[in-house]
């Protein structure tokens, strides 16, 4: 069941960047509403700004103009310190190339976001185990990333993204580097997180098969949204 309260409201959003003397517009005057509990797949040709949109939703980039509202208050104009704290609390990222710390074990990687909380060592350990359990990789807790397959690394990355219990998961091509089987497993896990734990998931992908796992497909092209279809 989806909650109908809007989680994100993007108003009149524009993003462009300058390279040398050229100004390249990614998109302009974009409006968008995301309600809590949604699972959205954003597709589009390369350069269309899908990743940029994700970055704006996650507070790791700021718009050229327009506003990004989260739970009713603006986040695009927060200071870097406040943004960092906001991210830690509300957002989990999942990247195409996992971006795990090579020197840390799987468990330690998952524990990273909890260092930003005031939880005790014991409480952190519990949370880590829970997260690893949810994604089904608890048996590899002590392994380093180089000892894990791509699919296993992505699981660890997902565990890291949910361990602090954020409302939102932002995924940038999460299955882009995986074989078909691993991809299906990962996407299945994301579905479970959305259904069972009510996580709002926004996934950027260029793979139509992956997009099918989402409940709503958006197509971004030339800075405009086109609704692909709603699969509830």
């Amino acid at each position: 069941m989806t909650d109908s309260a809007p989680l994100y409201t993007l108003t009149d959003l524009s993003k462009s960047y300058t390279r040398g003397r050229e100004t390249i517009k990614i998109f302009e005057q974009l409006d968008m509403t995301i309600t809590s509990g949604e699972f959205i797949a954003i597709m589009g040709p390369s350069g269309s700004g899908k990743t940029t949109l994700l970055n704006l939703l996650g507070g790791i980039d700021t718009p050229s103009s327009g506003t990004v509202d989260f739970e009713g208050s603006r986040v695009d104009n927060l200071s870097q310190g406040k943004l960092a704290a906001w991210r830690a609390r509300h957002v989990g990222f999942i990247f195409q190339f996992y971006n795990l710390m090579p020197t840390l074990t799987a468990a330690q990687n998952v524990e990273l976001p909890l260092l930003l909380t005031k939880l005790s060592g014991k409480e952190r350990k519990n949370r880590v185990l829970t997260a690893l359990d949810i994604v089904g990789i608890a048996d590899r807790a002590g392994h380093r990333p180089r000892q894990l397959s791509g699919g296993q690394q992505q699981r660890v990355a997902i565990a890291r993204a949910i361990v602090a219990d954020p409302e939102v998961l932002l995924c940038d091509e999460p299955t882009g580097d995986l074989d078909r089987n691993s991809a299906d497993e990962i996407l299945g896990t994301l579905q479970e997180l959305n259904k069972d734990l009510n996580k709002t998931i926004i996934m950027v992908t260029h793979d139509p098969a992956a997009a099918k796992y989402a409940r709503r497909e958006l197509f971004l092209d030339k800075g405009r949204f086109v609704e692909k279809g709603d699969h509830t």
Binding site: I60, A85, W86, M101
Partner: peptide, 15 residues
């Protein structure tokens, strides 16, 4: 660089 960027996305602030 990349690892530090990831730490920032996780919410570690500049200080």
């Amino acid at each position: 660089t990349k690892e530090i960027a990831v730490m920032k996305t996780l919410g570690f602030n500049e200080g």
